[in-house]
Design a protein around this nucleic acid. Structure first.
Lengths: 252, 252
DNA sequence: TTATTATTGACCGAATATGAACGAAATTGA
DNA sequence: TCAATTTCGTTCATATTCGGTCAATAATAA
């Protein structure tokens, strides 16, 4: 029995049972233990299976399910925002201090950082509410509370942001384009977001594909203030390439 | 059975029943107690479950439904606190700027000021959420968020309080006596309360009768910093008279 | 045939998973 | 409140599995 035949049998078994043990495969394939493990290693690299201790599973079974069922307002791009934030959360390591701005995109990152041992600095009340009682330590930005935006803003907020220095800053905007830079619908929101970029070592812009190369009415920052752009899989690679040429790291 | 397979069974059981006992899992998974507990620990770190004593639950079932609220927490002297706050609210006029500290007594004032056209400065999250969306304009004090006390504290908070000047300040303490002055169980709470007294024209102490002439362990301010004391009808008039003689206005 | 390459198998140190024991901490019931 | 019971977390020991190297075999080409 050669590798191709064994591969078919392994995948068939997995399709049927969901998971298999190496010993079981040794019997069925009439091969040595090391050969079985080599086969599993090859199949894992192709993404066809996920290895476990002592065997293998179908990838979709081994994958961690999304921890929470988010109960939010009906949002057109919620799936994209969630995917973007899941990706963004991978850049956050234990011990770091991060800024989170008050946009609805950034809010979705909460579900992915609830168990991290980090410090979050934010002016967003929904984020505060969501992270209270978790392992995340929170520094709240004070200021004038804007009921509509559910966040603290104003001169006091800007001043307080200036007192902190964070490792990373995660912000979102209403639009970005190479010509106009970062644009926003709200002056007060953009001011706090801008302050967060100035006081962080690394700035991540979280923005879904529908807002790239689209402008809102208020220009508030040049493209150069962001270090990385995280977006969803539907974004245009040709356009993203132009951003990359400007020195911005792209993740999608 | 390896970890991945056990994980699937644990999550499936939780999805079905909402909660499981460790002994039950030992039977179903055919694993030792320590292995079960280790599995639960790993799944908890991923945020997929919440551990309980003797088992686990689905996170959304175990989560505190209203993390920001004093409701149900300190109903000890609720009637007294409510009466005190109703009385205190009469001193608040439209157009004024007032400090509210983060004690459970002061929180009760919210229900009486929701329709006033005032500005409230506070570090209390329950007060913030209670007044959001009302006619009251809110200035939020930022700082380190203390989950247990549901408020922002620390050096940053103190500094920010120093920037505002209010007409009136409403604070509460864990104890007051002529001999020891104002005393508190918590250093961080008392520090913010003290800052609020320094930056207001008039200071009101809201305290129920069970705490008068009782001391807590931390002395944080002399009696002289308060201008008025508001308490309930069960307080001792003889004792109150002594406070009055010290120049403090008494309301009950 | 001979040389070369690919596949397979075996060995061994390293990494991981599991289990048992014991003191610490939390829960329960009086 | 206090004591008894249960449960938790840490540490150590054991068993299983993993990955890398080297040797043996089979397949292929010159």
């Amino acid at each position: 029995m050669n590798f191709q035949e064994r591969k078919l049998k392994i995948l068939a078994l997995l399709d049927e049972k969901g998971s298999v043990h190496a010993k079981e495969l040794m019997m069925v394939l009439d091969a040595s233990e090391i050969t079985v493990r080599r086969d599993l290693s090859v199949l894992e690299n192709k993404g066809l299976i996920t290895r476990t201790h002592g065997g293998a599973m179908r990838p979709e079974l081994a994958k961690d399910p999304t921890p929470i069922s988010f109960k939010g307002k009906s949002n057109q791009n919620l799936d994209k925002k969630t995917a973007i934030c899941e990706l963004a959360s991978r850049f956050i390591k234990d011990g770091e201090v991060i800024y989170l701005d008050c946009g609805s995109t950034v809010f979705q990152i909460c579900q992915f950082i609830k168990t991290k041992k980090i410090k979050v600095i934010t002016n967003s009340l929904p984020i505060l509410y969501e992270l209270l009682g978790t392992t995340v330590s929170i520094s709240l930005i004070g200021g004038e509370v804007d009921h509509e935006r559910q966040a603290a803003h104003g001169k006091t907020a800007i001043e307080q942001i200036g007192k902190y220095q964070a490792n990373k800053s995660f912000i979102s905007t209403d639009g970005i384009s190479i010509a106009k830079g970062l644009t926003s619908k709200s002056e007060i929101e953009s001011e706090t977001a801008l302050a967060m970029t100035k006081n962080a070592d690394e700035v991540f812009l979280l923005i879904d594909s529908t807002k790239i190369e689209k402008d809102s009415f208020l220009k508030f920052a040049p493209i150069g203030i962001i270090n990385s752009l995280i977006t969803d899989k539907y974004s245009d690679d040709i356009i993203l390439l132009k951003y990359k040429e400007l020195g911005i790291k792209i993740y999608k």
